[in-house]
Design a protein around this nucleic acid. Structure first.
Lengths: 218, 218
DNA sequence: TGTACATCAGTGAACGCGCGTTCACTGATGTAC
DNA sequence: TGTACATCAGTGAACGCGCGTTCACTGATGTAC
């Protein structure tokens, strides 16, 4: 990598960061203009084209970047869980939510554009999410109570967990950093929700007939 | 109501519908211009100001409209459940997802703007969602297994259910009408997810210590 | 009921602005000899 | 190592366009007498 290439990568990076920064104030990705990004990044508008064809292409690069760092975090967490020989639900959820607030810009982008963004960006994010669901479903095989469930059911449960977690992200990012009380309450509710899903999972199949009765007994 | 007022309401309505129609092709609300809306509605741009101060105000009106029709649907469903004396999970979920596809325009708006839209619209939607959560938590008291749970836990479970349902909406609306197979599979997964939550809920508290062990036993 | 005036939903021209994109350019860095 | 040329990241002027908003207007409908 020559010195020129390095500086080019720096500019590219500042374009990506400028975009995330512009989104921090609550703006959607689609409403941000190419000229705003270059202004924020400190280059002339035409310099943009040396790096991306258009804003959509920058959006896809952003998805790649963000999901790469997310995958890294999850890998660390997985290694830690293997080392400890168990998963502590409460501390896992707390760690996750702290990480989300720490990397707020990235998660804001993911959460907001998952449903709302340009078609291409939305599809890229959903592809990444599906990837996480598959990984989590695989992790579930480490749980004695779950490893005998069919793959379909593991995927179904993983999908529920991931989407619930994404929802926590959206809610915790909507809070300002001085709303500590609400952040705490949200975290506690998140822990309970994950625990409830695990309770449901550990009684799955075995209890399915009983659940039917429960639901019918209004 | 005079004839003039009536025609004014008609124009107002066509502005709202024009906006939803423009969003059907996958566009976000914020990316739709005032001029596009009036063009689609068949009036001159300046006529817009006879009805709304700006697009944000139209967005809030849209939230009101959509959540009114949604509340109506849920009320009907609730009456039906009371008449039958029980809730059939499978058919409720199926009915709900059919309704979502039928009223696709409205739900597309709600789901996409819940996280992504303008601050005001987003807040209005989240207020409505919180309202639905409270209502559902109240409904839960009709379930013998649940009525002894503290209000906090009922809210926590209702929140999980509502957010999971919103997620189904996003996924089913992403499918085209000829992807019948995928629609069916999504519905079946939705039924299972709701059932799993109910299984979890019916073992909640009683089993919480056991769940801890389950989670720790990797 | 008929008339005279008021209201006001919708019109159409005009504005200044930020946008994405084009183009020819500059000058620092890289490469070949 | 030194020179001559090629590359190419970033520049700056220019363009046409759709935008939101203003303004004075029109003419159908409503209201008061």
């Amino acid at each position: 990598m020559t010195a020129r290439d390095e500086r080019k990568q720096q500019t590219r990076q500042s374009l990506l960061e400028a975009t995330l920064k512009l989104m921090k104030e609550g703006r959607g990705f689609v409403s941000i203009s190419l000229r705003e990004v270059t202004r924020e990044a400190g280059v002339v508008p035409t310099a943009f084209y040396r790096h991306f064809r258009d804003m959509d292409e920058l959006g896809l690069a952003l998805v790649d970047d963000v999901s790469l760092s997310l995958r890294k975090m999850l890998r660390d967490e997985r290694v830690k869980a293997k080392g400890a020989g168990h998963i502590a639900l409460q501390s896992s959820v707390m760690m996750f939510l702290l990480y989300v607030r720490q990397e707020a810009q990235s998660f804001e982008f993911l959460v907001r554009e998952r449903m709302g963004g340009s078609t291409k960006v939305r599809e890229a994010i959903q592809r990444e999410v599906r990837h996480f669901v598959t990984d989590l479903a695989n992790d579930f095989r480490m749980f004695p109570e779950m490893q005998n469930l069919p793959s379909d059911d593991l995927e179904m449960i993983a999908d529920l967990v991931i989407n619930t977690a994404i929802n926590w992200c959206g809610e915790i990012l909507a809070l300002t950093s001085d709303q500590v009380r609400l952040q705490y309450e949200l975290s506690m509710r998140a822990v309970k929700q994950l625990r409830l899903i695990f309770v449901g999972a550990s009684h799955w199949k075995v209890e399915q007939g009983a659940a039917e009765k429960t639901a019918a007994a209004v």
